[in-house]
Structure formats: structure tokens, C-alpha cells
Design a protein around this nucleic acid. Structure first.
Ligand SMILES: [Zn+2]
Ligand SMILES: [Zn+2]
Length: 202
DNA sequence: GTTCAAGGCCAT
DNA sequence: ATGGCCTTGAAC
């Protein structure tokens, strides 16, 4: 029942339970970590099939390539991964997370408020919609999750291509190497100046 | 002082 | 490499 005490949403990537907002939307803890590792270490995956692998709780480990692709397709944002690796604080998505939460919360309130529970026959009298919280009648719920966000066209999201967008997307060092699978050593090698990029954490 | 998402740690 | 849990820290 309670939407907050359980977060009954499912991860749009793998279907596992979400643990909160991560890099732009609600995802599970594992996909959060996977996305972070992938972007931070500039991992390059190659699908052994045709980029059509099923990503679910039990198979998400099987094809990192399709998993990362799906991460991007569902809207996880590269720019939410900090190139400078600074911890804590709030990024520019903070307000959006808050609004998205409010939307979901209100939607839930409507549903539980008899929104879709049409009286099972009998009384033909219209029930007065009492908004417990005193909210105004919402025009309509767009149903989509993050409407106000500006989803970059999927084209520019693909890591396989050269050009990236911004922030971490300067893609650090795509030129770092070829052949050797190890971008690694991000810990010892402090890459990049403290670039501010699009991450507006002032 | 509280939030809570972003990064770090480390046992699988 | 994965993912559960921990620490951090600007916004509120
Ligand atoms: Zn997931
Ligand atoms: Zn695949």
C-alpha cells in the first residue's frame, strides 16, 4: 500500500527492485553499480549476439553490452556520473527527482482515493472526489515517468560511437588504448582536471 | 540537522 | 566483474 515504505517500482533495466533514483531515474542497486563502473572505467562491451539479449534479474550478468545499452535506452544519464568522482551533495537532477516523486505519489493517492475503483454497481450517485491533501484536481497523469526531462536522442547516447555529449561524456580517453581491455587505474591516475562540465553542482 | 543520490569498499 | 552495504556532502 504505502508507496514510500516499499518502493514497489521495478528497475526498468532488469526488473529487480529499485533502491532509489540513480543517474536520472529509479533503478535497482545492481544496475546503479553497473552503470557507474561502466562509465567511470570507460568499459567497452561487445554483444556476442545481435544486441537483443534479454536483460532480467537472472540474465543481466550474461551480456553487459546489452545491459548497458538498455541502461541508456531507459534513460540513465551519462552526465550524472561524475568525472571528478566527488562524493555526496546534490546534482542538477535533484529537483527532477523530487518532482517525479511528487507525481508518482499523487498518482498513487488518486488510485487509492477510489480513482479507478468504480462503484460495483448499485448506487448511481457520483462520489465526490475528496482530495485528502487538498490538492487540486490533476489535469491528467501523463503516465510517462520523467516527462519534463529532456531525453537526448538515443543516437547520441550510444557509447560505441565516437562523439559524446558532455560532462563525463568527454569520454575521458577513448583514445586511451585499443586492444588492451584495461582502462582501469582510475584510482591511481587522476584523470582530468576538475572539469565542471554540465554537472552543475555549485 | 536531515535527505538521499553519488562514489567507495569489499566479500562473492 | 558483480552487487550489497557504507560514507560523503550540497541542497533543503
Ligand atoms: Zn536493474
Ligand atoms: Zn547482448
Amino acid at each position: 500500500m504505502e508507496s514510500r515504505l516499499c518502493l514497489k517500482e521495478l528497475c526498468p533495466v532488469c526488473g529487480d527492485h529499485v533502491s532509489g533514483y540513480h543517474y536520472g531515474l529509479l533503478t535497482c542497486e545492481s544496475c546503479k553499480g553497473f552503470f557507474k563502473r561502466t562509465v567511470q572505467n570507460n568499459k567497452q562491451y561487445v554483444c556476442a549476439e545481435q544486441q537483443e539479449c534479454t536483460i532480467d534479474r537472472g540474465q543481466r550478468k550474461r551480456c553487459p553490452s546489452c545491459r548497458f545499452l538498455k541502461c541508456l535506452h531507459v534513460g540513465m544519464r551519462l552526465e550524472a556520473v561524475r568525472a571528478d568522482r566527488k562524493r555526496g551533495g546534490r546534482n542538477k537532477f535533484g529537483p527532477m527527482y523530487k518532482r517525479d516523486r511528487a507525481l508518482k505519489q499523487q498518482r498513487d493517492a488518486l488510485i487509492q482515493d477510489g480513482g479507478f475503483r468504480l462503484d460495483s454497481g448499485s448506487s448511481t450517485h457520483h462520489r465526490t472526489l475528496t482530495f485528502t491533501t487538498g490538492f487540486h484536481p490533476l489535469p491528467m497523469i501523463p503516465s510517462t515517468s520523467l516527462p519534463t526531462a529532456q531525453p537526448p536522442h538515443l543516437c547520441s547516447l550510444l557509447p560505441s560511437t565516437q562523439y559524446q555529449s558532455t560532462s563525463f561524456s568527454n569520454w575521458k580517453s577513448q583514445h586511451s588504448n585499443n586492444g588492451s581491455p584495461g582502462p582501469r587505474d582510475c584510482k591511481s591516475t587522476h584523470i582530468l582536471y576538475s572539469s565542471r562540465s554540465t554537472d552543475t553542482r555549485v
